[in-house]
Amino acid sequence: MTNRQIKSLMCIAVVMAAGLGVAAPPAAAAGRRVHPGDSIQDAVNAARPGDIITVMPGTYYENVLITKRLTLRGFGARTVIRPPAVPAAPAAPDAKAGAAAAAPGAPAAPVRAATACSQADTGICIMGTPEQSVNDVKIRSLAVSGFKRNGIWASYTDRLSVERVISEMNGTWGIAQERSTRGVFRGNTARDNTESGIFIANTVAREGGATDTLGAVVRRNTLTGNRIGVTVRRVRNLTVSGNLLTGNCGGVFVVGDEGEPGAGAMTIRGNRIHENNKFCKGNSRLPDIQGVGIVLTGAEETVVRGNSIRGNVGASPLSGGILLFKSFVGATNTDNVIEDNVVRDNQPADLANQGTGTGNRFEGNRCGTSVPAGMC
């Protein structure tokens, strides 16, 4: 076939596609750049759904509120968001969101979200509402440091993705999410936060049954120097895998209560949980925390498999390698599977099964000591 014939066929194909109504490829997402001295929040407000905002290397002193689908990305540790010298007023919603909020009977979503974010004194807030979640937000390759509350906080989101973020020295949680589904938290570093490095919950405002996260993922994160490395509280259906947790007061906490549905139906696998021997004083909810590997309290149908849990040593009621602990509100651990873990040199025991729960199985673990005896 000659070049002229090939070109003719290509032209015919284009004409036929147009005649059949074949859509052209979608336009690429618009890109916006923020430089030191610019406002990240201004770029977020001006962005259209789906835009990519690139934050250039530098230090930015502000809080950022996101209420629409977009990507916010930086240059790793060279792009840092820190608290403003003077607390900012609540961020103004964009015109489209403001018009929606003003419509008769419509929720004032952006105003409520902005107020909550400002009051929380958080680095980056991703805020939806019960009526309308915020979907497909991506936070990439930047640092949030030194906020009074949280580095990153999300409410009412779906498919939030936080990857390669450094969240450090924040007054509550490093990276936290509530009332949300299908979140992915991967390749992050959360260190020296006052509470959990990564925190996934049904809600922090009230009691209630566990939220089905529809497959949330906490994977390949490095969690050091926090009170607890990873806390999953009153949630179901997620995976915590391939993380490094060391130097915290505690490694992984799975927390449930008497609500329905119960917390659990999750997998904790392939994590390295070593020497989490920092001491944290207890509070009204928990005793002192030190030397904690993995704790399940009020959990059901959770699989703990193939983890390396070594050298977690303490004298707290929660200390040890893998502990099924009696819930403070009376909920029992039921039908959990603890298998094929390497659990060594933890004190007071490598494995412990407390409380009155039923159906819990300890199988194939390599360990030295257990309470009661005979599980190693």
Results as ranks from 00 to 15, higher is better:
192 D>I: 08
100 A>R: 15
81 I>T: 13
226 N>Q: 09
333 N>P: 15
61 Y>L: 14
195 E>P: 05
362 F>P: 14
307 N>S: 14
2 T>N: 14
46 A>T: 01
363 E>P: 11
302 T>C: 12
314 G>D: 12
241 S>I: 07
2 T>V: 09
64 V>Q: 08
188 N>I: 03
215 G>M: 12
367 C>K: 09
239 T>C: 02
156 Y>L: 05
322 I>H: 09
267 T>I: 14
210 A>S: 11
34 V>Q: 07
209 G>F: 07
197 G>N: 06
72 L>Q: 00
29 A>Q: 11
334 T>H: 08
369 T>K: 09
29 A>C: 03
95 A>C: 04
245 L>G: 00
186 R>N: 07
323 L>A: 12
207 E>I: 00
251 G>S: 07
16 M>Q: 14
301 E>N: 15
287 P>I: 07
277 N>H: 07
368 G>D: 06
317 P>R: 13
145 S>V: 15
293 G>E: 00
190 A>E: 02
52 I>S: 01
296 L>T: 08
105 G>L: 05
317 P>Y: 02
192 D>L: 13
162 V>A: 01
297 T>Y: 02
263 A>P: 07
314 G>S: 09
265 A>Q: 14
372 P>Y: 09
96 K>P: 02
278 K>S: 12
302 T>F: 02
115 T>Q: 14
71 T>F: 00
150 N>A: 05
298 G>T: 05
105 G>P: 11
138 K>W: 00
72 L>S: 03
23 A>T: 08
317 P>L: 04
325 F>W: 10
137 V>W: 00
96 K>T: 06
246 T>H: 08
206 R>Y: 00
59 T>G: 05
8 S>N: 15
293 G>F: 07
285 R>A: 15
225 G>C: 11
238 L>W: 03
348 P>M: 04
43 A>M: 04
144 V>E: 02
26 P>D: 03
253 F>A: 09
173 W>T: 04
143 A>Y: 04
97 A>Y: 00
39 S>F: 06
86 V>N: 10
134 V>C: 04
278 K>V: 12
300 E>D: 05
24 A>V: 13
143 A>N: 10
206 R>A: 12
152 I>H: 02
103 A>N: 02
308 S>Q: 10
364 G>L: 15
216 A>V: 05
63 N>M: 15
199 F>G: 00
361 R>C: 07
326 K>E: 15
63 N>Y: 12
159 R>M: 08
174 G>I: 10
264 G>K: 04
143 A>D: 09
31 G>N: 03
26 P>G: 06
106 A>K: 12
291 G>W: 08
308 S>A: 12
141 S>G: 04
281 K>L: 15
114 A>C: 08
198 I>C: 06
143 A>W: 04
176 A>L: 02
295 V>D: 04
163 E>P: 03
231 T>S: 10
112 R>C: 01
107 P>G: 03
70 L>Y: 01
154 A>P: 04
170 N>S: 12
251 G>A: 01
372 P>F: 09
262 G>H: 13
242 G>L: 09
145 S>A: 11
289 I>C: 06
18 A>P: 10
